[in-house]
Design a protein around this nucleic acid. Structure first.
Lengths: 147, 147
DNA sequence: TTGATTGCAAATATTTTGCAGGCAT
DNA sequence: ATGCCTGCAAAATATTTGCAATCAA
């Protein structure tokens, strides 16, 4: 079940030496269960619903820790780069709904060799790549048709 | 020669109804000739060298016009998304040096069909994609070795 | 001539930092 | 008990807007 992931995350964070406070638990809960991209303000409002004491600054600081621990990644989109999403296990790439922010990972073919060759052609040493697909998810396709 | 592109850009901007002022000419000159990503502040300092009167706000406003006219694109990187680069003609993708910001376009295989299929699998209608390679260019590889 | 464009100052928006008190360990 | 973490306020950063003067068309 989904709480499994939350527990994993908390354990990992604790192993890294971070303290497990209530704001931490709330924010981990939100981000580990979300199937949509979330920006700090969105996390903040969801968190406030659960514990009204939580401040936006704590959200920023907790997100930073989770990012550095490799639990979440910042996701870049044409219209903004403040959103975060659970990071993938292996080498996967993102398919994102530009309307609602829903996201899915898909298996990345192993394009690495191809990328390496392109780099060589220009004298570059390729170290990383980004591949993302943008579109409309099933729900948002419908909404678009109706409007 | 390189001034050809500059002239093209100015003509296009004029055709769109924009007025060709001196700040416009200076900024178009800088961006049309650069083989590195440039952020607004970098453009601003280069522009000031040529015409000290130019203000940062004008750089922002001119960049916006050029972006809307399809002459330049905002480029997203792991460490920031404020840089701009001349946009590509056809369907090409970027190879970027993360050290100095040098960038090259390479031919995009036609991966569209592949992407479309992935979208279908998840019920998405794929409309766009990003593919970028990050690495070190020839010059920066050397610098890294020496240090 | 006319209204788009400029540069300045000020406003916004987003993210980061300083600090005193609180809480996990 | 120790010192990391929190929330507040304030600072820093990046970008946008209001406005009077200027300049391209």
């Amino acid at each position: 079940m989904k709480d499994q992931k939350k527990q994993n995350w908390l354990t990992q964070l604790q192993d890294q030496g971070y303290r497990i406070t209530d704001p931490m638990k709330v924010i981990v809960d939100i981000l580990s269960k979300s199937d949509h991209l979330l920006n700090p303000t969105e996390v903040y409002f969801q968190a406030k619903n659960i514990n009204p004491k939580i401040g936006l600054v704590t959200v920023y600081r907790t997100i930073e820790k989770m990012e550095q621990s490799g639990l979440i990644d910042r996701v870049h989109m044409p219209d903004g780069c403040q959103s975060f999403f659970q990071s993938s296990d292996g080498h996967q790439h993102l398919l994102i709904c530009t309307h609602c922010g829903r996201a899915e990972y898909f298996e990345g073919e192993d394009l690495n060799q191809f990328f390496q060759k392109i780099g060589e052609r220009f004298g570059y040493h390729v170290r990383d790549h980004w591949l993302q697909l943008f579109g409309l998810c099933a729900k948002c396709k419908k909404i678009e048709l109706e409007s």
